[in-house]
Design a protein around this nucleic acid. Structure first.
Length: 193
DNA sequence: GAACCGATTGCCT
DNA sequence: GGCAATCGGTTCG
């Protein structure tokens, strides 16, 4: 996986890869099942659309670092920065199928003690992913392999399982089909109604 | 410097 | 379905 490639190429290619975090000595993570591509300063929905700021500075690095931002003052969301330096392209990780460190993620999500825990509450949704992985905005700009790592799938994902459609929750450029997910996977975020 | 808004989630009715 | 929580960035006065 060459993260220096275009985010529109990298985003669907990340589906099926395993994403782990080794924050605080706790290894947790899962299989990437849903992502969204953001395409630099020319993408009106991107945080980079208004240029470089202290917050968005990590997006301008060469692909291979992470960009973590605070959403609605509450939730940390994880992006993998892609593309050449200066392009400010990124891929938002919207959902994982949890596979590693379920207990630690359950604790981080404050879901301990639930009789019948729906595992989709762990990592289905960008804010949930950030919390389950133990990320804070202090981690923004760190290199891949530092707090967050990627591992390829054992067997490649069948291309026909990759579906795409409009990105979620944005008000600008809402028509661009830059959200990618694994068709039929239960951990993909359900449509908001 | 104040008001408003957002790549969200969880709890309420 | 509605709405509060909560804060950094952007916009407006």
């Amino acid at each position: 996986m060459d993260l220096r490639a275009d985010s529109l190429t990298v985003a669907p290619a990340l589906l099926g890869w395993t994403l782990t975090s080794q924050q605080g000595g706790e290894v947790v993570g899962g299989r990437i099942v849903e992502v969204e591509a953001y395409h630099g300063e020319t993408d009106p929905a991107s945080h980079a659309a208004r240029g470089r700021t202290p917050r968005t500075a990590p997006m301008y690095a060469e692909g291979g670092v992470i960009y973590v931002y605070l959403s609605y003052g509450l939730h940390t969301c994880l992006n993998l920065v892609t593309g050449p330096a200066g392009e400010a392209q990124a891929v938002l990780v919207r959902a994982l199928e949890p596979t590693i460190g379920l207990e630690a993620m359950t604790a981080r999500r404050h879901l301990d003690g639930r009789p019948r825990l729906d595992s989709r509450l762990l990592t289905s949704g960008p804010g949930r992913v950030g919390q389950a992985l133990g990320l804070t905005i202090a981690d923004s700009g760190s290199r891949l392999g530092d707090v967050v790592s990627l591992t390829p799938p054992d067997t490649p994902l069948s291309p026909q399982l990759i579906h795409s459609g409009p990105r979620i929750g944005i008000t600008r450029a809402a028509d661009r089909p830059w959200r990618f997910w694994i068709a039929g996977n239960p951990f993909v975020t359900p449509p908001r109604v």
